[in-house]
Computed example of a mutant assay.
Amino acid sequence: MGTLTDPHNLLTVLEKDEWFSSCASELKQALVRDAKLHNYAAGEALYREGESARYALFCVIDGAVQLTNALHDGTPSLLVYLQPYHWFGDIALIDGGPYIRDAIADMDTQILCVPIQSFSHWLDEHPKYWRDIARLSINKLRVAYQVIGEPGALHHRLARRLWLMAQGFGSRTQNPSLQLVVSQEHLAQMMGSTRQSINAALAKLEGLGLVGQGYKSIEVHDLQSLLNHANHLDVGDSSGRS
């Protein structure tokens, strides 16, 4: 990962994220100008809920990050599982408030961290780029609306969640990843279910030929068929194509 200290190489890998690639060159340069690459060990917190924001934005370069929320009994609830090259942290940047979730490295992870003071000052001098920050947040809101109140049985809702994960929750719709590195335990936390129920739902999807299971991994065989199933269409039905 040492080659990523070269700004050109860093910009090249960041282009894999659709939001970043759609931004103007001036904004891209501002994002990486003062940014630092930080390494986090598995289980280490990038930040905790309620902490004052030190960084404007984060981007997963290598590894994975869990955004979690503590339930009433103190157990963590996994909200979203972020992998390369997902940008996050925009809420604190926009409203100036503290972080609203815990961000935990799920494995040895490298994160690009954009300092909030210098970047906020730059945005104030270049206000037209606040629209791009708003786009980043709205993309996440669109995904949230797809997840909230998902209809159907668990295997339907799981199909949609896997479909979203394959597309990086909207960050790589043009270049989706069909190999998902995620455990059944993480899926259970995200879906508010049990590992046993997730195992049964995955078995259902596997039996339909939609996915294949590996060790802490899931291979998506056909994204469109997975979405069709999430929308309660027959696996072979093409009427649900978007």
Rank of each mutant, 00 (worst) to 15 (best):
L164W: 00
G214K: 05
L202C: 10
G214H: 04
I148V: 10
V32K: 08
G212W: 00
L14E: 03
L71D: 12
I61N: 03
H72G: 09
V143N: 07
H155N: 12
V80Q: 13
D62F: 04
D34A: 06
R195F: 13
V13Y: 01
Q174H: 03
A56E: 09
A42D: 08
D6M: 14
L4F: 11
V182R: 14
V32W: 01
S239F: 01
S171Y: 00
F88D: 11
A103T: 05
F119Q: 11
S193W: 03
S177F: 01
V60E: 05
S242F: 05
G240A: 08
T194A: 03
K140P: 12
M1E: 05
Y55E: 15
K216E: 15
A53F: 01
I94Q: 08
Y85S: 02
M107V: 13
E15T: 08
I100K: 11
W19M: 09
A103H: 10
K36W: 10
V13P: 06
G89Q: 10
K128W: 00
S77C: 07
Q174C: 01
G74N: 13
K204E: 15
N231E: 09
L162I: 02
S52F: 03
P98M: 00
V147N: 04
P7L: 02
H121Q: 11
G2P: 00
A70T: 13
S193T: 03
R241I: 13
Y47W: 15
I138W: 06
Q196P: 06
L57M: 09
T12E: 10
L27Y: 09
E206T: 12
D108H: 09
